[in-house]
Amino acid sequence: MDCEHKYYAIKDVSEITGVNSVTLRAWQRRYGLLNPMRTEKGHRLYSDDDIERIRKILTWLGKGVAIGKVRPLLDGELNVEDATNDQTDKLKAVESILTALVDCNGAKLDKLLIQLMKEYPLDVFVKHVVNHVEKEIKKPENPLVNIQLSLWQSVIMQRCIALITQAKKRSSKLCYLLSFDQPDNYRLWLQAWILTDMGYNVTVLPSIDGKLAALGATLTSLKVSRVVVFGERRISAANLVQLKLLIANTHCDYELVGSASTIHHDLLAES
């Protein structure tokens, strides 16, 4: 190993780049996008050049380039125009998901999501897979919209819960994710995954309604550092009063996400 250069463990690279370790390993094993050094015990060590390559990969994925096209693009074997115009691989992934939904095949859908959620960073997965699939499901001419949307939301939620549960063992930074939406919105669980990816041990409280005094005591006793309130709908007047009391009587960092951040944009400024 070259002692004059700095090397980083996979956990450090995840923190630096925002790409989780599962995805970094998938990029190496499945696509040969990375080739980190190994210690004598087999642990991966990444150089500054590797980190720069990861950032380039993220740039191309953010532009909509399919993961299978990134390596030839980086290696100069594919020109930029062809890579950005060729949506075949990405469309195949979405088509496979839609086929599983048409067949109401939850097991196949789960298997597809496991693979895609390993290969793509969360923001890319949401933008190029989740949003696209949801748009296709909700087309007016789709006679199976209700059953397909129900299956899609159910499997996404289950997959996110599995990822969150696995991560709980690895993090001591406590974060509570609250939602007052009735009924529960499945994108709440995507938000939970985002927070988990940021290194938080996330507790999710969906469909909250009523007094929050007991929650305030819990946040204080557990020394919870962050509370995120997710919502796509207006919070009722009664629940808004409770939330304001919670914010005033605890010392956590609060954040509003989803449409609620626009609807109640002055909430945190008032507190």
Score class of each variant (00 low, 15 high):
181 D>H: 08
32 G>I: 13
122 L>F: 04
226 R>N: 07
264 H>R: 06
180 F>M: 10
101 L>A: 00
269 A>G: 13
192 A>K: 14
105 N>A: 06
177 L>E: 03
42 G>L: 09
200 Y>I: 04
193 W>S: 02
53 R>P: 09
187 R>L: 14
63 K>H: 13
218 T>M: 12
76 G>F: 14
224 V>K: 09
158 Q>P: 07
11 K>A: 11
36 P>C: 00
71 R>Q: 13
176 Y>E: 10
89 D>K: 06
144 L>N: 11
233 R>F: 05
226 R>T: 05
154 S>Q: 15
15 E>Q: 12
186 Y>H: 08
122 L>K: 07
117 M>R: 03
62 G>P: 04
198 M>N: 05
230 F>M: 03
136 E>A: 13
249 N>T: 13
86 D>W: 13
188 L>D: 03
104 C>G: 10
223 K>W: 00
185 N>H: 12
67 I>C: 05
122 L>D: 09
51 I>H: 05
189 W>N: 08
257 V>M: 08
40 E>C: 14
237 A>T: 13
179 S>E: 01
10 I>A: 03
225 S>F: 07
67 I>D: 00
74 L>I: 06
233 R>M: 03
259 S>F: 13
251 H>R: 15
59 T>K: 14
121 P>W: 08
160 C>D: 02
268 L>K: 12
153 Q>C: 02
171 S>V: 04
129 V>R: 09
64 G>M: 03
167 A>D: 12
234 R>P: 11
106 G>R: 02
106 G>A: 15
142 N>K: 07
44 R>E: 01
120 Y>N: 05
46 Y>R: 00
203 T>Y: 06
231 G>F: 12
118 K>S: 11
23 T>D: 06
78 L>T: 03
181 D>I: 02
127 K>G: 00
